[in-house]
């Protein structure tokens, strides 16, 4: 689904990505992990040409993005969804309008838009909050709006840059659950960049480890399942007691 061929990217003299080749297969949840500054985000942003490579090719769904004219590139981007650590929603648009805008950018018929928006909001479980503004939502809800927005144009691929890194453990589980569902029930290929091992282990079927702008290793993994934390106060008490017993 995604093929990176000997990609390089420099900032001034600094080589952020050094001749990286990588294949992401259709249907995968492909994790990219590594230390801060390893080049994970840069590599992800090269996949939809948010960053232009200095050398190498990017192919997504059979199209070589690096050869497209700007108009064709914009068209191609519509089937590559992207979500971000800080959500990047339009604060002055409601939840509904935030999802609607991605349909306005495409040529979706006006009368088909409301139904499609609601379908996406229902998928992420937020149809009841459609009139709210982002400032009125929790972090997890904001990220779900961002996912709904990314799904509106029925993408083949969803790129996720640290999607849970500004969320607490509960909302992290909530967002990971939605992402897994996007992959399973919509068949969307997902690439997820994270520095959190738990996040990568929970849902990824393949993981690329990066270091110093290069791929260190890519390996197949078995998703461990999403850790959910019980909100019930007794859970916390039990956990605390358990630790005590272990030490006794």
């Amino acid at each position: 689904m995604i093929k990176l061929h000997q990609l390089s990217k420099k900032y001034e003299k600094f080589e952020a990505i050094q001749s990286v080749s990588l294949t992401v297969n259709k249907g995968e949840i492909h994790g990219i992990i590594g230390a801060s500054g390893a080049g994970k985000s840069t590599l992800l942003r090269l996949m939809n040409l948010l960053e232009m490579p200095d050398a190498g090719e990017v192919e997504v769904d059979g199209q070589t993005l690096t050869k497209l004219k700007s108009r064709e590139l914009r068209q191609a981007r519509k089937s590559i969804g992207m979500i971000f650590q800080h959500f990047n929603l339009v604060a002055n648009k409601t939840v509904y309008e935030n999802v609607l805008v991605s349909l306005e950018l495409s040529n979706v018929l006006r009368k088909e838009r409301p139904g499609r928006v609601m379908e996406c909001l229902r998928f992420v479980g937020l149809e009841s909050l459609m009139e709210k503004y982002p400032a009125q939502l929790s972090g997890g809800q904001k990220q779900r709006v961002a996912i709904a927005r990314a799904l509106a144009n029925k993408p083949k691929v969803l790129l996720c840059d640290e999607p849970t890194s500004s969320l607490d453990p509960n909302t992290t589980a909530e967002v990971l659950g939605v992402l897994e569902n996007v992959n399973k029930s919509l068949g969307v290929t997902i690439v997820i960049v994270s520095h959190e091992m738990d996040v990568i282990k929970s849902i990824c079927t393949k993981v690329t480890v990066m270091a110093n702008g290069k791929v260190f290793e890519t390996l197949a993994t078995t998703p461990q399942g999403i850790q959910t934390i019980d909100n019930h106060p007794q859970y916390f008490v039990d956990q605390l007691k358990k630790d005590k017993m272990d030490h006794a």
Partner: peptide, 26 residues
């Protein structure tokens, strides 16, 4: 926020759309 403009571009917005549907709204 720069991220909002980035999100717009990642959705395939034209410069005109970035201006009217994102920048001026925000």
């Amino acid at each position: 926020p720069k991220g909002v403009i980035e999100a717009a571009i990642s959705m395939g917005a034209t410069v005109r759309q970035v201006i009217f549907k994102f920048l001026y709204v925000e």
